[in-house]
Design a protein around this nucleic acid. Structure first.
Lengths: 252, 252
DNA sequence: AAAATGACTTGATCCTTATCAAGAAAGTCT
DNA sequence: AGACTTTCTTGATAAGGATCAAGTCATTTT
């Protein structure tokens, strides 16, 4: 019975040209003809369930992957047995870029919920990008964007307070959900408090306390994974770290 | 008189095929013919002096740059006027990769000492990489490597203690100097304590105290910018954060 | 439905590192 | 050379967040 269900899933193969994520994804900026050619090398497998690994550190690198639904956590093991969460990835986002370097995955990727992905065999993508300059350009842009995003994380971890980190985290999801046509102020987080803390360089307890405090300050309403942002502008103030957030609150 | 000197500098244009850094740099893995073609698009300008900007955030992005001598700091301004140091770059290292994304530099690069660079006009590099698959491959690898390196910084800033951070920092320079044919245990750091602290997410005072402590523990000898590493293995122990460093010290 | 498990929250305490403050050393300028 | 500036060091204190310890709430198991 599961097998029949899986087969039906596999039949739901949305071609790039019909995919709502195309504007966020690799086909962005390509002509319809080029999208068609790119589509030709993409593999769409069965969905992953919560806890399934898309790949693990050390695995041979063959494909880049784009999340098409669900969400994924990437992480790398660190020396002393623990892990460092590297990112949370939503539909339209490309993962595995760090593995091009030496043909092996350096980090792992695990589904946080039922998740579908497109696999893009890298060697074929590379060949294709040799004959499709616009695809090559798009690849360079995506790789560069990834570098820019990690740079922002460096500032977050290097300079920001716990409060600023969580506000940044929440607004990042708000913006990304909005981009994808979902509510910017009402969403579910698919990861645990522990994973949020790990990602932000904070202890679980600190994350929990901050959620409570933000709620007490009417910045948001939170119930487990369900978050409703009630005062997005003030969250942006907090991100700025100008401390005007507190004063603007007291001015009310 | 300066102009004559500059002219003489400009004449010292080492072609890629004669450059000792070629194995670390873009030509890595290219055939001599391909290196020649790459060489054709590279511009070698006059050297920068300490404090000169190679580019600033907001500048139009035209070229990637490879340091050929000296050293460079990259940084991005952050909201509240301060800056976040993103990296220190030694000969053979490629900078500007983050700017491909939107055709503008998002961060700034400044010479920490007299520094020479090769400029690689990106549009020409892109065209060339379309007809030279091995160059394209090398570009993907370099971009991917950059992502991997930033990932390591995330772990450093997210999980490591001040002590582990400084040890990691010192060993990174040790390894990179060694790769370049210099001593792995005796070198000059071209940046200030303040810049080190900024980069590592620590206060200047903490960096200073750690240098003193490491010296007291006979891990190194430091006098201003001149660093001599006296016990590299134990520095590696510290990086691991297993705390075995301290016990191995007391065992002596 | 009760028990067990895991996730989250809350409180109390401790520790690391930031901040504040001042002095020393090095480098710069006239 | 002497004054000035900047960088670095060192000490004292404070604060932010980690850690330790319980307890609560959900969810799953039996």
């Amino acid at each position: 019975m599961t097998s029949r269900k899986v087969v039906s899933f596999e039949n739901i193969k949305v071609a790039c040209k019909n995919c709502s994520l195309a504007t966020l994804c690799l086909p962005m900026g390509l002509t319809p003809d080029d999208v068609e050619r790119l589509d030709g090398i993409i593999k769409r497998g069965r969905p992953y369930h919560r806890g399934d690994h898309l790949y693990r550190g050390g695995d041979k690198f063959n494909s880049l992957r784009v999340i098409t639904s669900g969400s994924v956590k990437t992480y790398s093991p660190n020396e002393d047995g623990g892990e460092q969460v590297l990112g949370f990835h939503l539909p339209g986002e490309l993962i595995g870029l760090d593995a091009i370097q030496d043909d092996n995955h350096t980090c792992s990727a695990i589904a946080l919920e039922t998740t579908a992905v497109c696999e893009i065999p890298f060697s074929q993508l590379e060949s294709l990008s040799c004959i499709m300059p616009s695809l090559q350009h798009q690849m360079y842009r995506l790789l560069s964007r990834e570098i820019g995003q990690e740079t922002e994380m460096l500032t977050l971890l290097g300079k920001k307070s716990a409060e600023e980190r969580l506000a940044t985290f929440l607004l990042s999801f708000s913006e990304r959900f909005k981009q994808r046509g979902f509510s910017a102020s009402d969403f579910f987080l698919s990861m645990s408090r522990h994973e949020i803390g790990n990602y932000l360089g904070l202890a679980v307890e600190t994350v929990s306390r901050l959620f409570t405090r933000f709620q007490d300050e009417n910045l948001l309403h939170v119930e487990r994974k369900h978050v409703q942002l009630l005062n997005i502008p003030r969250l942006y103030d907090i991100v700025q770290g100008t401390d005007s957030a507190k004063s603007s609150q007291s001015r009310i």
